[in-house]
Design a protein around this nucleic acid. Sequence first.
DNA 1: GCCTTTCGCTACGAGTCGTAGCGTAACCCC
DNA 2: GGGGTTACGCTACGACTCGTAGCGAAAGGC
Lengths: 208, 208
Amino acid sequence: MCRSSSRSPSRTGGRPRSAAADAAILEATRAALVELGWSKLTMGDVAGRAGVAKTTLYRRWAGKNELVVDAVAVLFDELELPDRGSLLADIEGVVVQFAALLERPETKTALMAVIAESTRDEPLRERIRTSIVERQKRLVLAGRQRAQARGELPDSPASATGTDDLIFDVIAGAVVHRALVSAEPVDAEWVRRFTALLLGGLAAAAQA
Amino acid sequence: MCRSSSRSPSRTGGRPRSAAADAAILEATRAALVELGWSKLTMGDVAGRAGVAKTTLYRRWAGKNELVVDAVAVLFDELELPDRGSLLADIEGVVVQFAALLERPETKTALMAVIAESTRDEPLRERIRTSIVERQKRLVLAGRQRAQARGELPDSPASATGTDDLIFDVIAGAVVHRALVSAEPVDAEWVRRFTALLLGGLAAAAQA
DNA sequence: GCCTTTCGCTACGAGTCGTAGCGTAACCCC
DNA sequence: GGGGTTACGCTACGACTCGTAGCGAAAGGC
């Protein structure tokens, strides 16, 4: 529930910020991303769509970068990991979900843009990490633990430190690269092949 | 040797474009990317650095997107695939090279940005594909053929259609995600683990 | 030597940025 | 219910970038 900017010091009396305005602004931002894309999205346009003054936006967000991160972050909350009975099915399920999210025009145009900006903006990178990346990574952690409970993976893999991070980078990286760089569809056939490749690698690592 | 914009129709007499200006502009663009990053790079600034008029830039490139793609494309020519004796060593070598390229501030800030732009600009996507993506993909093709010659991979893998594409998305995607999204170092330990994972998956696929 | 094209330069309207200042509105606390 | 405090809408502003137009001059092909 992190609010826009850091709002901790001495929250005494005074008019509280409108929660409705927050929702309207974020919704307007997503709409603007769909219609205009990242590069043509302007703060003034978002303010107009949301029915608020431009100054209100700047009171809550430092700029376009932070606003867009918050606007798309909620979309990543939709990602879930239902138990499909096997590690293979679980991986396929999360890959399909993630691919569907990347197909949406809001995320498609915004995700790479904010990551590009974050390469020169450490606070922004941290915001992306906590708002977007960590939420995805939890799915990997949950999937691994579930697979271990099923006995599909060894309980204490040798040198497990960073293994979750590796799996996460492979899954998320491959899907993003397929969808946005290669710009080819993440269809059932691709998902099947990718999952088979990853699962084969995990099995080989478990034997060693 | 594709020149900036499409220059095919009726190239009769007249003053030819300065090749030196082209080189100076692309060099200035890379320098500006290092110092300013993608978002603060302006066409006027690049023109000033290159010692040419701003109008000269617009005569050759449609805008910032196309200019930056051309400026960073040449960096991807440095990628090579020397024979290191085994598929494992070859993969590790290309991963290290690619990671080193992504560590450079020019590519780090530019690559994600132009990909983000390309999601809403089909001609730009095509330019990226031919100038950057295909050059990387060739390394995967060469590595696979070399491994087949060594006998490390079956000569005619079942349903090989799109396998190179899959491997490419996995390798490039994982490295990019590690370096730019997770923003953690692609060190020797990570490369070793990733390569082992990928190689295990390939071996499992070969057995099936 | 003529023709064609590029070049540097200047200037321009349009658009965006981020902020300042003001009067008003909404809420908390006493 | 009155103060005090903060958020809000609105307007206006300087600074900056964009992409283009117009000009005279320069550099090559034929």
